[in-house]
Design a protein around this nucleic acid. Sequence first.
DNA 1: TATGAATGAGTTTTCATTCAT
DNA 2: AATGAATGAAAACTCATTCAT
Lengths: 214, 214, 214, 214
Amino acid sequence: MARYAIATEDKQARREAILDAAKTLFLAGDGTLPSAGDIANASQLAKGTVYLYFRTKEEIFSALLAASLLDSLKELESVLSELKGRRADKVASFIASFVSIIESRPELLRLDAISYGVLEKNLEAETMLEVKREFIIALSHTASMIEFVMKIAAGRGVLLLMRTFAMTRGIWQASQPCDIDLLDEALALPVLQPVFHTELTEALNEYWRGALAS
Amino acid sequence: MARYAIATEDKQARREAILDAAKTLFLAGDGTLPSAGDIANASQLAKGTVYLYFRTKEEIFSALLAASLLDSLKELESVLSELKGRRADKVASFIASFVSIIESRPELLRLDAISYGVLEKNLEAETMLEVKREFIIALSHTASMIEFVMKIAAGRGVLLLMRTFAMTRGIWQASQPCDIDLLDEALALPVLQPVFHTELTEALNEYWRGALAS
Amino acid sequence: MARYAIATEDKQARREAILDAAKTLFLAGDGTLPSAGDIANASQLAKGTVYLYFRTKEEIFSALLAASLLDSLKELESVLSELKGRRADKVASFIASFVSIIESRPELLRLDAISYGVLEKNLEAETMLEVKREFIIALSHTASMIEFVMKIAAGRGVLLLMRTFAMTRGIWQASQPCDIDLLDEALALPVLQPVFHTELTEALNEYWRGALAS
Amino acid sequence: MARYAIATEDKQARREAILDAAKTLFLAGDGTLPSAGDIANASQLAKGTVYLYFRTKEEIFSALLAASLLDSLKELESVLSELKGRRADKVASFIASFVSIIESRPELLRLDAISYGVLEKNLEAETMLEVKREFIIALSHTASMIEFVMKIAAGRGVLLLMRTFAMTRGIWQASQPCDIDLLDEALALPVLQPVFHTELTEALNEYWRGALAS
DNA sequence: TATGAATGAGTTTTCATTCAT
DNA sequence: AATGAATGAAAACTCATTCAT
């Protein structure tokens, strides 16, 4: 890694190395963004080098979040393209896959949860815009597929998808365990510490049922 | 306000003064918790005095969040007790009121959005537990009313309420405008910067319709 | 303790209570002076009350140190008055008693060790002088007894006593264990972590032998 | 000094600069450790830079103390190697030199006096151990020379040296003038404010005479 | 390009002491 | 005399970012 990265592909590889290190560190950590120094160490690069590839620390994680989001959408599309059967079955299938996809990317919701208030600060306006733009395009594309596959009116797909993400975000935050296990009997109500997988699946099924009811 | 807060009521008043200052500062700010020093200044108190009433800065905002939440629930109950007509009407009415209540407390969702990752750290375990416990009790109470008023099976109320909050959280975050107004035509798609009020109302209606469909 | 102390003896008792609390706290602690608040709590008094009896926190510990010192001297005199036999025996006996006396007052050397650099600051000039004056008088008295009992030239007693204290101070500090027990084989040399009692006894015996050699 | 200290020697120089500044400030001060900010200013460096060279403020002074101590021992050895004549003369000479050496390093005893209670706290266990280990080795070496030069039984040298230091420490503390010059006639007794040089010389002579008396 | 040395702003909390009651 | 509410100074250390090499 200490050699000069001159070819475009080498540069790309170095970027990836930084992103990987950042992701690993973030997931291993306590929800706080790891320090730039730690990321540099973990990437086997000098601190200054990191700043050759990203303008700010937040940009790293913003990129990570964007990548996760786009990957999820891509995977979702691949799922969508395989759906068969009646609409109700497709929807159930879709939701099940959606939940799996989300769960297979733990960094996604953890980053999303702090994106307001942490990531959004210290982020160049341009960068954020760029990310949003990319996301919109990808989202629209997936939404179109949903409309097509589920036979939904044009324009509804994007709403359904956004609200699906919204519910996901909200339920994820509610599912986070306290650091402490002093949960006494009152807290034993599983309601307040729901199991993410189950809870999200149910909630999304309810939501889609309502959204598709004419 | 008495120069020296000796009577219990004076102490309470001073506590409120701090909370008020904190809320004002937070709402005026950029989503970051205002510094303890600023809160002290705004409350016309010395820095040390603030720490006589709250053990840490986070405790202040935790208290603020809890109060907002509990007040919302109380207001919600008052709404519930007035609902008349067929269930569908009651639901629509309830949702409309819910959205209004939420919007009338701007600090609620802003604090909630950073509660994971900022408030939860630096908060005594006990304090957090106490807050959660109170919240659970209040939530259960409101949930019971919902079950009663909407004629919903026992145990479903709390789920509906939790998911309602989840959707709210998620949509709020999606509705936050970027700091910048560089929104170009691509972002003009209102989808990604939805108007909170409208978007939430629709989403909740869809959700409740699905949830109540047998 | 909450009642008013009007009689002089009551005041004295309250003073003692504070001193006791301070001593207990100091000995239980980590070598730092306990906070004024803790002392007040431990004495069952309000913080303000403590300051009715002592002008500064340091004054409390200064008084404690002075009392310990004076008591030690008094006890030493009582030992001196009992000494019998040849001078060499008297000296050995005296040293043995001295070491015991010192060891029976753990606060003495602990306070003495921080007296330079902690106690001396934040102490009214007058107070410090007063303490020193008292100490000089007591020391001179004891020194006279030493001269008389040991048949030492006038004026030598005070020097011997001062140097005895000096050696004691120095050896005590050398005998303090590190907080850590990571002492590896190199540190196993007991020389550097001598056992206070033994080491002091030996050192003082050597010193006195030399001092008394004509 | 190079703007950027990249060469090892430049780094060493910067370290020295910090130590020098710290020493100067400490000696000019009131016995308290100067603040990290002040040290940085005096070294013409930024606060953060100081922390690139030392992990904590205490580490700076610990290094200073260690250096002083080791230098003293080295100088002492050089003195020892020159001693000539009968043992009694060697001892007297040695003591005289010892006192001079100690006096030529005013920071040594001042730091030593606060080492218990200030330096020992806030100091990494490892660091402290390392310092102690180095000191032990140097001390043992000097002790061997003493044994050789003075023809003392093996193992006695280290004891004599330790006790010499102990006496030095103790007498130094007793020799410290009050901040105030309100010394009235009672305190005029030079006993309690002895002149360090004279007092230490006498005391050490007495001690060594006793220690070497068979 | 890569490095890593240098920078310095930024903030919570403690606690001795005072003084209104 | 007693209380305890109020004060506000004081300081170590981190870490994102820059820039000399």
